[in-house]
C-alpha cells in the first residue's frame, strides 16, 4: 500500500520533470543531437566538405593515435594550458568577488570597472596583450628593465609562449567573479552572526562558512571554466598562430585548421569527438568527487 503510493508520487514527479525539461529536450534533439550525429558519421569518413564523404571506418582514429604527432602535441599543450589557466580563473575570480562583495561606497562603479575586460571581445584584447608583452618596447619588459631584469620574449619564445597565453586569463576573472558574487548572496548572514557569537575569527568563518556554502558555485565554476579552457582558441589564433615551434598549438586551433583550412573535415570531426570525450571524462570525474566536497543546502535527503 505504502509502496504503491510512493510509486504514484514518483510517477507524478517523473511526468512533471519531463514536462519541465521538455524545452531543453526538444532543443537538445534539434540543435545538438541532429548536428552531432552528422559529426559522428563524418568522423568515420574522408570528407572535404565539397565532395561526398567516403566511408573509411576507424582509419581517422587509428591515424590520430598512431601516426599523428601533432595530435599529441596539441593535446599536451592544451592540457598544460588548462592546468595553468584554470587555477588563475578559479582563485583570482573568488578573491575578486570577495573584494567586490564588501559594502563600501562606490562599489557599483568598481564592479562595473572590473567587468570591462570581460566585455571586450577577443581580438582587441589580443592586440593589447601583444603590445603589453612586446619584448623590446612593451610595457611589461620596460618595467622589468627598471628593476634590472631582462624580460623574456613572451609570445615569441618557445618556453614562455604558453605561460604568456595562460596569463591572459587574468582578464577573464571579472566574468567569473560575477558568478561567485551571485553565489555569495546565497549564504545566510545569520550564519556569520552565529559564528561571531561563538567566537569564531574571520578566517575561521571564511573556511567554515563561506567556502563550504560556496561549493556549489565552485563546482559550477570548475566545470564551466574547465570546458572553456579546453576550448581555448582566439588567443592563439590571433597572436601566436600556434607557434613558436607549436608551443601554443591548441587543440581547437588544430581542429580549425584541419577542418576549415585544409578541408580535412572528416578527420577534424574525429578530432573534436575525441576532445568532447576527454572533457566528458573529466566532467564525470569531477562530478564523482563532488559528492565528497560539494554541499547543497537543498540536497534531496531521500536519496
Amino acid at each position: 500500500m505504502k509502496r504503491s503510493k510512493r510509486s504514484a508520487i514518483d510517477r507524478r514527479q517523473t511526468i512533471d520533470a519531463y514536462v519541465c525539461i521538455s524545452p531543453w529536450l526538444i532543443g537538445f534533439l534539434i540543435f545538438t543531437i541532429m548536428p552531432i550525429s552528422f559529426t559522428i558519421y563524418y568522423s568515420f569518413t574522408r570528407w572535404t566538405i565539397m565532395e561526398p564523404p567516403v566511408w573509411i571506418g576507424l582509419k581517422n582514429y587509428i591515424f590520430m593515435f598512431t601516426k599523428d604527432p601533432i595530435f599529441w602535441q596539441s593535446l599536451k599543450v592544451t592540457s598544460l594550458y588548462v592546468v595553468m589557466s584554470l587555477p588563475i580563473i578559479i582563485i583570482f575570480g573568488l578573491l575578486l568577488a570577495l573584494l567586490l562583495n564588501l559594502k563600501i561606497r562606490g562599489m557599483n562603479l568598481y564592479r562595473t570597472l572590473f567587468y570591462i575586460p570581460a566585455v571586450i571581445s577577443g581580438v582587441s584584447v589580443a592586440m593589447l596583450w601583444t603590445w603589453l608583452l612586446q619584448p623590446d618596447v612593451g610595457m611589461v619588459n620596460t618595467l622589468l628593465d627598471l628593476v634590472g631584469i631582462k624580460g623574456p620574449g613572451w609570445f615569441w619564445d618557445p618556453v614562455w609562449a604558453l605561460p604568456s597565453v595562460a596569463s591572459m586569463s587574468v582578464w577573464k576573472v571579472g566574468g567569473s567573479a560575477v558568478i561567485y558574487l551571485a553565489g555569495l548572496q546565497n549564504i545566510p548572514p545569520q550564519l556569520y552572526e552565529a559564528a561571531r557569537i561563538d567566537g569564531a575569527g574571520r578566517r575561521q568563518a571564511f573556511f567554515k562558512i563561506t567556502i563550504p556554502l560556496l561549493t556549489p558555485t565552485l563546482f559550477f565554476q570548475l566545470i564551466i571554466q574547465m570546458i572553456e579552457c579546453f576550448k581555448v582558441f582566439t588567443e592563439a589564433f590571433v597572436i601566436t598562430k600556434g607557434g613558436p615551434l607549436k608551443a601554443t598549438y591548441f587543440y581547437l586551433l588544430y581542429f580549425y585548421e584541419e577542418g576549415f583550412q585544409h578541408f580535412n573535415t572528416g578527420y577534424a570531426s574525429a578530432l573534436i569527438l575525441v576532445l568532447v570525450t576527454v572533457i566528458m571524462g573529466m566532467t564525470v570525474f569531477v562530478n564523482y568527487t563532488s559528492k565528497r566536497w560539494v554541499y547543497y543546502a537543498g540536497e534531496d535527503r531521500a536519496s
Binding site: 601583444t130 603590445w131 612586446q134 619584448p135 623590446d136 612593451g138 620574449g153 609570445f155 615569441w156
Partner: peptide, 8 residues
C-alpha cells in the same frame, strides 16, 4: 624588424 616587432 624582429619577429615580435612584425607581429605587434
Amino acid at each position: 624588424p624582429s619577429v615580435s616587432d612584425m607581429e605587434t
